[in-house]
Write a protein that binds this DNA or RNA. Structure first.
Lengths: 339, 339
DNA sequence: TCGTTTATGGTAACCGGTGTCAATAAGTCT
DNA sequence: AGACTTATTGACACCGGTTACCATAAACGA
């Protein structure tokens, strides 16, 4: 490793520019009460030296860190990555960095872990994904620790400043309504895990659509998974083994919808001729399987972007969207029921 | 937001315990030269107060941060997430946190960006994924900045301390060898992007296997993508349009292999009866499409774990594995060629 | 012309830890 | 007993920024 010279500090800049630390600090922080000539002089020295302020020192003095945390316990890898991309998009060009922290929602130490994470890193703010976000305790904890937070949800969990929300239920209702109008009357459901608000909302959307047409969701056509492919596969086999078979299945996320497709093809069924499949999320896997999956697009990335903005620009939190619309993306896995 | 009392500091602890700051510091750092009675007394106060040392202050005093960066420009989302999981696994229970930073490998400012990232956050160490890791400049930069680093690679890029490597070429050679022994002689290739060492290694493995059997890779059966589904789809259509059609296709990653499958099914081909497909990565998508994909498993997660250990325990870097074996995972997308 | 305001920049203390080195108490050796 | 270690602890400066407050000089009003 090269024997490099130590990094220049604010003192070096001050000395070379012939001013005081404070003046350099003013330049760094764009203080308005500063002579232009002085500013230019200092700026030049900063550039020459390649000076970068030490964030630890700033963090110490300002009593806040420039780290935004992402807290999740989400089996959906693709979703988590989209979230990261969205957040980083908002943070680009700022001094903030993104720290990721998966947690175990079933652990008895869940909130101790989160508290420890926030305190340990003295986080500036956190974005919490479902299902952890659905627990109000997380909001209480953040308030107690003086840490900003935004929760992602499928329903009104909190006030606008601390929430990004999508209208899952409505979007599902519309998508299923279309299936019904296409002739499907026997529609199965591979539901999400019990503790998830998102799972309940999506199922509620399905039931509302059925009800509106005088239909219902028979118990034997419903099985639940935990948003993973494997769990969806098990659930799908159960639903598909019923007699008469459903002509359409709505899965609470794409990964499980892919599993439904997998199970159907395995049984020699033709999709969509014999079975229509509707997913939720619009993750890449949905677009990449064959036939490509009809799904409800959830603007995860845009939500994450907005959440990050709310976190890093607290004073303008309200300017950034809190409510997002999910929408149907029709591809080849659904089709009108023939005769 | 609650009006919470300020966090206790080392001074509070010192005062309440009736000792000096330094002694408290010794307790925190498990210094051996400390009287047991004193240690117990201080520990008790720390516990009562719920004192947590301020990492910014420590970082400032120690001149190093407890952040590990992950630098990548990798289109494979699933891979990136596996890497994060592996790293976090190694970092669990330590004071380190993981900071993620996607970069644009084609940007003219790539190394400026990386430099800025490292300097800005005063990173303790970084883990660099291909293809960025394949550029030696990144090693030079880290050396210059005094930042620890580990590069992930498909070939010997660096010394053991700064590298985790897998034997892609060999694994591909063996997998393809099996295809050939199963009767396939006309084997196509959907290659990875030009600048990627991993792409070259995988293709080399294919060519070596072919050569060993007196075969070769005809130009018209080779097309390249950039590891994304869409690019793989375009490449696949090109390869599948050749006459005679290949009876097997090796794609440089699973995502593109999924695209090959997609294109094949779209054309009404039966897989694997008419076309065997071999992927690389063993990402979930491969296991979830139908038929499930035969692929080469790359121990991404284990590599990331080892990389993180090397970063956070520099003194024991050599103890952690640097070389990993990839291996064939046979599923249903490949089959012997029927005469 | 003098006192008052306004702009500008300096000094010192502080954020919450760490290192260095000296001071003290206790034990060991001759 | 006196000198020498050794174990334990504290005083103090320092890491690299920030804020609070003061000092100076220029500009302005009377």
């Amino acid at each position: 490793m090269a024997n490099r010279e130590p990094k220049p500090t604010i003192n070096d800049v001050a000395r070379l520019a012939g001013v005081s630390k404070k003046t350099v600090s003013r330049v760094i922080n764009n203080s308005p009460l500063l002579n232009d000539a002085t500013r230019d002089k200092v700026t030049a020295v900063i550039r020459d030296l390649g000076y970068v302020p030490n964030p630890q020192a700033r963090a110490l003095a300002l009593r806040r860190n420039f780290l935004i945390g992402l807290i999740h316990d989400n089996p959906n890898a693709q979703m988590v990555l989209s979230v990261q991309e969205g957040m980083l998009d908002a943070m680009k060009g700022t001094e903030f960095a993104l720290v990721v922290r998966p947690v175990d929602r079933k652990s008895p130490h869940l909130f101790d872990d989160i508290r420890h994470f926030i305190e340990q890193q003295r986080l500036y703010g956190i974005y919490v994904l479902p299902p952890v976000s659905e627990n109000d305790e997380v909001a209480r904890l953040c308030a107690e620790l003086g840490c900003r937070y935004v929760r992602m949800g499928s329903a009104r969990l909190d006030d606008e400043e601390h929430l990004v929300e999508s209208n899952d239920r409505e979007a599902v209702r519309e998508a299923v309504d279309k299936l019904i109008r296409d002739g499907h009357t026997r529609i199965g459901h591979v539901a999400g895990p019990d503790g998830f608000r998102s799972a309940r909302e999506r199922e509620a959307g399905l039931r509302e659509a059925l009800l509106a047409h005088g239909l219902s969701l028979p118990d034997e056509l419903r099985a639940s998974g935990n948003y993973t492919f494997d769990s969806g596969y098990t659930a799908a086999k159960q639903v598909l083994s019923q007699n008469p078979r459903p002509t359409a299945i709505f899965a609470a996320n794409d990964e499980m919808a892919a599993a439904v497709l997998h199970a159907a093809l395995e049984q020699g069924l033709e999709v969509p001729r014999q079975l229509s499949i509707l997913g939720f999320d619009d993750t890449p896997i949905g677009a990449h399987i064959w036939p490509p999956l009809s799904t409800v697009r959830w603007p995860i990335r845009a939500m994450a972007r907005s959440a990050a903005f709310k976190l890093i620009q607290p004073e303008r939190a309200a300017e950034h969207k809190s409510f997002f619309r999910s929408e149907l993306v029709e591809r080849a896995s659904t089709a009108p029921l023939k005769g």
